[in-house]
């Protein structure tokens, strides 16, 4: 009984804290994406003439994230019945956007005009163990080639 009460209180607290962090992160992402809207990032590379390039260099952005205890509980529930695990979708979406932004920020800080040949990678760096109440950690990696064009 006591550990059940503790569980309820704990999950509720984690829920509110986790949702607050998530909301703040989304707000920050939107603001920073707005600021970097001018900088294109594309998957291919045919967006510039080779003759116009002043400099090209590799840029990347990376972030390691983990889900919270509440998300793990929710994911467990949904896994039982099947369906979309929105708890992890939101986590992965915002971490991927964060990695992309960090890459763009790295490129912008050195005066890039665009990032080409962008790739995304997700890797699990820790399996996680629900019985030990951890969700596992993921690394989101985004990398590409930053291009600086010659002054016209």
């Amino acid at each position: 009984m006591a550990d059940f009460l503790f569980f309820v209180v704990f999950v509720t607290a984690v829920f509110f804290i986790g949702q607050h962090i998530q909301k703040k992160h989304f707000a920050s992402l939107e603001a920073r994406e707005q600021a970097l809207l001018y900088l294109p990032a594309v998957v291919g590379r045919k967006v510039f003439n080779d003759d116009d390039v002043e400099r090209a260099w590799l840029v990347h952005g990376t972030v390691v994230v983990s889900g919270d205890y509440f998300k793990m509980m929710l994911a467990g529930l949904i896994k039982f019945f099947g369906g979309r695990i929105s708890a992890y979708e939101s986590l992965l979406d915002r971490s991927r956007r964060e990695a992309l932004l960090r890459m763009k920020e790295a490129a912008a800080s050195e005066g890039a005009h665009m990032v080409v040949n962008v790739r995304f990678e997700t890797s699990k760096i820790d399996g996680g163990n629900p019985s030990q109440q951890t969700t596992g950690m993921f690394e989101m990696l985004t990398y590409g080639t930053a291009i600086r064009l010659k002054a016209q």
Binding site: F7, M72, M73, G76, L77, K79, F80, P130, S131, Q133
Partner: peptide
């Protein structure tokens, strides 16, 4: 089996 021993169940 279905949930990797999630404690909720």
């Amino acid at each position: 089996a279905g949930t990797n021993s999630n404690p909720l169940g």
